[in-house]
């Protein structure tokens, strides 16, 4: 149950792109075609699935204050290596990415060619490092939960890039103001989609996420109503986009 909850929470509520803006660079750069975005999304899911649990182990057994004491004996329990976490995490990620690159080159050369420079850049995709850092800061308790968190975040990112790619393929035929073409309109659409994704916030009633402002003023309620309307519209478009 706990796993399922975290899974859906990391896909929809804490969506990498729409809630925390991680991996925006590749999200914007590779979302011009659905086919490439699917490949990129799959690579991100895989890398996140692998790196988050590995980094969880590193965090538990090496980096946390006193973690060395768990397996090296009492003498080492006074060490606090948490300042090393950035460098350890990024090293794990870079290695894993290299691995994915080799595998993709071997088994799917066409995909390898179409991803081009962006495959090595997964290493610097903030979504990957962000996954590990959030795993650390949210203090996820077990390794299986960490794996679920990685998988969920990856799928969330995949969903986001797939839908924006679908929308961008269609928007090529619409009459966008010249100055907004390309990047500008993509930003605004992403913003609208993010508003849509906010509506998932009410999906889990586990109660661990209290609304931030307990008392809402009249203005806020009005905004909420408008948001609800927009959200419905966007959700509809969203579904169309995915189809």
């Amino acid at each position: 149950m706990e796993h399922l909850e975290l899974f859906f929470k990391s896909i929809f509520i804490d969506n990498m792109v729409f809630a925390t803006f991680l991996g925006m660079c590749s999200y914007l750069a590779i979302s011009k075609k659905v086919s490439t975005s699917v490949g990129m999304g799959a690579a991100v899911i895989f890398v996140l699935c692998v790196t988050v649990p590995v980094n969880w182990l590193l965090d538990q057994y090496i980096l946390q204050p006193g973690a060395l004491g768990k397996w090296l004996g009492e003498d080492y329990s006074s060490y606090d290596l948490s300042f090393l976490s950035f460098i350890m995490f990024i090293a794990t990620i870079a290695t894993m990415v290299q691995l994915v690159e080799i595998i993709v080159e071997k088994f799917a050369p066409a995909l390898y060619n179409s991803l081009g420079i962006f495959l090595p850049l997964i290493a610097v995709n903030c979504a990957i490092l962000g996954g590990s850092l959030f795993m650390q800061s949210r203090e996820i308790p077990t390794i299986s939960l960490a794996a679920v968190y990685g998988l969920g975040s990856g799928i969330g990112w995949f969903l986001a890039i797939l839908s924006i790619a679908a929308i961008r393929e269609k928007i090529r035929y619409s009459n966008v103001p010249p100055a907004l073409r390309g990047l500008g309109i993509t930003f605004i659409i992403t913003g609208l989609m993010a508003i849509g994704f906010m509506s998932f916030g009410g999906m889990l009633t586990g109660g661990d996420e209290e609304p931030k402002e307990a008392s809402k003023t009249a203005g806020d309620v009005k905004i909420q109503d408008e948001v609800q309307k927009d959200v419905k519209k966007i959700a509809d478009n969203h579904i169309k986009g995915i189809e």
Partner: peptide
């Protein structure tokens, strides 16, 4: 406008800046 503090508005503000600049 409390909405400005939420995540989506950052995207829209950047979108508008791009619009103005271009």
């Amino acid at each position: 406008n409390g909405f400005m503090l939420l995540a989506p508005m950052a995207l829209i503000v950047v979108g508008i800046i791009i619009w103005v600049q271009r």
